[in-house]
Amino acid sequence: MNDHTTTRVALVTGGSGGIGRAVAERLAGDGIAVAVHYAGNRARADETVTAVTSAGGRAIAVSGDVADEHAMSAAFEAVEREFGGIDVVVNTAGVMHLAPIATLDLDELDRMHRTNIRGTFVVSQQAARRVRAGGAIINFSTSVTRLSFPTYGAYAASKGAVEAMTLVLARELRGRDITVNAVAPGPTPTPLFLQGKDQATIDNLAKAAPLERLGAPQDIAEVVAFLAGPARWINGQVLYANGGLV
């Protein structure tokens, strides 16, 4: 096992998903040991671990409901046991239900609140207690907090809460040499994004940005890698990664 003092360690929640997997692979490419967190899909998490290790990186899979503080405490402890500490926490785990505010099923509102708000809070709380000096905490918002697309009301509201707690945590960690930022992707073709959209909708979103394409998970992973490594003077910010859409 490598020297714990020289190897940076990252925990990526939702690491079996589209953006989460791209983030895990990108960070591993920078020499960071990666813990790939999953909630229910062990097979996809194992695929991400295999992709990292076959490319010469170090990775393990850890599981747990992000909204369950006991499960996440255990997940963080598992990472610390394996790799000796945690330097970077990237919280990509999230759920999205789209409907007009007038008709949204309130059970879906509660589900988004549990994963997107409580889950981000639980992960941020563990990160605030455990991340080592020189580290980074990176939460995930969405560009829809500015775009204000119809049917995104509840989802955008949950991500607005993520932005609020992210900016407060950056100030609460004064003196710890830990940056806290949020990444707000624009349209990115992941299963979460593609669900329920017809081709015309997808094409229109692709043309909306000046760069005239959708983002790729790797585009978002580049922003995370920047915040996780060299970007030590960016703190308490929301970075919009959307090709100029807003």
Rank of each mutant, 00 (worst) to 15 (best):
E108S: 08
D107Y: 01
L106K: 07
R132P: 13
H113Q: 14
H97T: 12
G135C: 00
V89F: 00
E82C: 13
N116Q: 07
R111M: 04
V131Q: 01
I86V: 15
A133E: 11
L109P: 00
F121L: 15
V79M: 12
V144K: 00
V95Q: 04
G94S: 15
F149N: 09
I86Y: 00
V131N: 03
T120M: 03
R118P: 04
E80A: 09
V144T: 14
Q126Y: 07
N116W: 02
V95Y: 08
A136L: 07
T145S: 03
L98H: 09
S141V: 05
H113F: 14
G134T: 07
T145F: 00
V79W: 02
I137N: 03
Q125C: 04
T103F: 00
R129W: 08
R146W: 03
I101P: 02
T142P: 04
T103I: 04
A93D: 09
R129I: 07
M96S: 14
N91D: 14
V79A: 10
G135W: 01
E82I: 07
F83K: 08
E108V: 02
S143A: 15
S148Y: 05
D110Q: 11
R114F: 05
A93C: 12
T142F: 04
S141F: 00
F121I: 09
A127C: 06
V79L: 02
A133L: 01
A133C: 06
E108T: 13
V90T: 08
F121C: 11
L104S: 11
T142R: 07
G94V: 07
L109K: 06
D87W: 02
L109T: 11
A127N: 01
V90K: 03
M112L: 09
I117Q: 12
L98E: 09
I86C: 03
T115D: 13
S141E: 11
A127I: 06
L106W: 10
N91K: 06
I117V: 15
H113R: 13
F140Q: 05
L104T: 14
G85P: 09
T145R: 01
N116M: 08
L104V: 14
I101V: 15
R132E: 14
I137V: 11
F83Y: 15
G135T: 00
D107H: 13
V122I: 11
R130D: 02
G84P: 10
T145M: 04
R111N: 09
R129Q: 10
L98G: 13
V131Y: 06
R111D: 13
V79F: 03
R146Q: 07
S141H: 05
R129Y: 03
G134M: 01
V88F: 06
Q126R: 08
N91G: 14
I101M: 13
R146Y: 02
V122L: 05
R146L: 01
A99R: 03
T142S: 11
R130T: 09
L98A: 13
M112R: 11
L98W: 03
G119P: 04
D105W: 02
A128H: 02
H113Y: 13
E108A: 12
L104N: 11
A102M: 07
V123N: 00
Q126D: 08
V95S: 06
Q125A: 14
L106Q: 13
G119F: 00
L109A: 12
E108R: 15
D87S: 05
V95N: 07
Q125P: 05
F149I: 10
Q126W: 05
G94L: 06
F149E: 10
A136G: 12
G135D: 00
